[in-house]
Design a protein around this nucleic acid. Structure first.
Lengths: 218, 218
DNA sequence: AATAATTTTTAGATAAGACTAAAAATGTAT
DNA sequence: ATACATTTTTAGTCTTATCTAAAAATTATT
């Protein structure tokens, strides 16, 4: 159906689209794929002809619905293969990416559905990233309050429960933002305060704070 | 290391080499691969430059040791993946070839060794074809006496136990030869005689005969 | 052995994907 | 608003793998 190269572009655009509200820039794609801007332009024209992206010269690209569906399918395959490699072949989660980059291009719908079944229909890959379903929808991320997380474990900040501006201001002042990784270092029993690590900094936060911050774990 | 196309050529030459004592002809390769003779010539030059084949213009090709090793590795991957598809994903043996054609090009030595282990080091694929080991050697085919084979099952003639000329003459007269497929139709309990099918012919043979003929079963 | 038939190779073209270098468009400063 | 810097596109080249058509070598036939 599509070449490996086309699939890789779609996948990259899909991932970049989640971070920029505007169309994805040629250079951003080039950098992500370790290729040159001119190569990207060539490919964007081709993908546009195939109705997989909305492309206007100098304006960046977005995926069409068809493009999104195709990208989701590739990501589905990639992540299912990662689960296979870790769960069935005993790879560790940091060794599987390169191999999955190859496996994701294997073309067979039956194969991927049988693999899904064999793995017992996993919802998340070994890195905790969601596996889109056959129709291209992504499962909702598990979010857990920071206060629920055990010592030694970590997660990435994905939202807040208390949306008051004073809380948000506090978070901002302390370097807590969406996407930041937080590790729980200590849990003080008597007042449920926690010592956490954000980047290289560590700090102590009250239970009040910890019970209003959502993290994605695993 | 090598492109998918180069690997496919090596594999094809490897298979064709087993049937012709001479070098493999350009046309034979072209036919097998559904491509044109001129394309084959181009590739043979490239493979020759890479020391994977011994190629002399107009004389056909043979694989070098390096070429044989490489071909065996691809066949190993192909057949291990076939075992995986049938044993783990519940494909039937006739559905797996095309998918394995894709999977055989996935590049990762660790992957293939882990897959081998996961499958418990199989020696034959679902079609009964031998799986070469890591070092490129093919396991000896299981041979079974015809007399041991159950009704309904079949095998291919691979040798004799009694090597007397009278026995060989008998086999010859009845159209039994190396490579012939034999199916067991009936097994008469009282004298252990068998009714077998060879090609379109069926015939009855004594236990004496059946217990001196080796078949490969699948 | 000379000619015919077949096989194989060469020559030249095409398509995909990537690159370099130059041109065009867009964005930013003074 | 004009000039500078950056981004993006175009134009042209390269590589890999393929093809067609024609030329060369080999094999078969009479």
């Amino acid at each position: 159906m599509f070449s490996d190269s086309e699939e890789n572009y779609l996948k990259t655009i899909f991932h970049l689209e989640r971070f920029s509200k505007e169309g994805v820039s040629t250079n951003a794609i080039a950098e992500q794929m370790h290729t040159k801007a001119s190569s990207v332009t060539d490919m964007l024209k081709k993908l546009s002809d195939k109705k997989l992206v909305n492309y206007v010269k100098y304006q960046g690209v977005t995926l069409t619905n068809e493009g999104k569906k195709t990208a989701a399918k590739i990501i589905r395959k990639h992540r299912l293969w990662e689960v296979f490699l870790v769960e069935k072949l005993d790879f560790s989660w940091d060794e599987v990416h390169e191999i999955a980059e190859q496996l994701e291009h294997i073309e067979s719908d039956v194969l991927i559905e049988k693999l899904d079944k064999h793995l017992d229909f996993p919802k998340f890959d070994p890195h905790g990233d969601p596996i889109p379903s056959k129709d291209g929808t992504f499962p909702e991320r598990d979010k857990v309050l920071l206060s629920e997380i055990k010592v030694g474990e970590s997660g990435v900040c994905v939202g807040v429960k208390d949306t008051s501006s004073s809380f948000l201001k506090f978070l901002d002042k302390n370097g807590v933002a969406l996407g930041k990784k937080i590790k729980v270092l200590e849990h003080e029993e008597f007042d449920n305060s926690m010592r956490i690590q954000i980047g290289k900094e560590s700090m102590t936060i009250s239970h009040m704070i910890a019970s209003n911050l959502y993290l994605k774990t695993n």
